[in-house]
């Protein structure tokens, strides 16, 4: 006979305490390079050269990182000397370029939000991370977020992949089929900027060229906690990175 109930009780809770406290367990995030001040201009140029996707730009001895393109290959960290600064956080959600104001979903959605995921030509990595949100560790149900299969009941459109030509129309149809208010989340470097695929005759090069994107979650792939942060931003329980809410600004 199975003692799963008893074993479960004995094992206790392992779910992350993320929105209340930060998660520090090993491996929850690959981390990311951040802007680094080098000793010389050459060192900065070298760091920019080592990046295979051209996410690093050198400027006067400091190297800037565009996280929209970074694939976390860690060449600038281990294949470069001196290494770039590396930050192990996961709250990466930003507003798209050129968007200054942000309105989260109304309060009613705070504890009940339904998400439809569209795989717009994803390699599988981001989709895999999205799937993790349903597992006992990340368990997004505790935050009142649910995946749904039909856009008719969905509030958030979560897009992964650079939007291939074959998925462009289905993606548009999904967006059109959703009721208002609706938010679009681009998850992963590919969805944000086209990533390593870029823009070509088969790839739209990011969701923003097809749909109005509300929030971008960079990372290749974006770790589950980063996606969770993005979803919390949609509900208004967290703020996007670098965004000063009107309240804070006025204060």
């Amino acid at each position: 006979m199975s003692f799963w109930f008893w074993r479960g009780l004995r094992k206790g809770m392992h779910t992350t305490r993320y929105p209340k406290a930060s998660e520090t367990a090993a491996g929850v995030t690959p981390g990311r390079p951040v802007t680094t001040q080098f000793a010389s201009v050459q060192q900065a140029a070298l760091a920019a050269q080592v990046c295979p996707v051209g996410a690093i730009t050198a400027q006067d001895g400091s190297a800037h990182v565009d996280l929209d393109f970074c694939i976390h290959c860690q060449r600038c960290r281990f294949g470069n000397s001196p290494p770039m600064d590396w930050q192990s956080d996961y709250e990466w959600t930003t507003l798209p370029h050129g968007l200054r104001r942000y309105e989260p979903l109304p309060r009613a959605y705070r504890r009940s939000m339904h998400i439809i995921v569209v795989d717009a030509g994803d390699c599988g990595a981001c989709l895999h991370e999205v799937k993790q949100l349903n597992n006992p560790f990340y368990n997004m149900h505790r935050l009142g977020m649910f995946f749904t299969a039909t856009p008719r009941t969905a509030d958030v459109l979560l897009v992964v992949g650079p939007v291939t030509e074959n998925m462009r129309v289905p993606l548009l149809k999904t967006y059109e089929a959703m009721p208002n208010p609706k938010k679009v989340l681009a998850v992963g470097a590919c969805a944000v900027s086209g990533g390593i695929f870029g823009q070509s005759f088969v790839s739209a090069g990011g969701v923003s060229s097809v749909l109005p994107v509300d929030l971008e979650i960079p990372g290749d792939p974006a770790p589950p906690l980063a996606i969770l942060h993005g979803l919390l931003v949609v509900t208004g329980r967290k703020a996007p990175v670098g965004y000063q809410s009107s309240l804070e600004r006025s204060a």
Partner: peptide
């Protein structure tokens, strides 16, 4: 009430 095309899984 918003009326939209029949949802058929996004197929053309």
């Amino acid at each position: 009430v918003a009326r939209n095309e029949l949802w058929a899984g996004g197929i053309p």
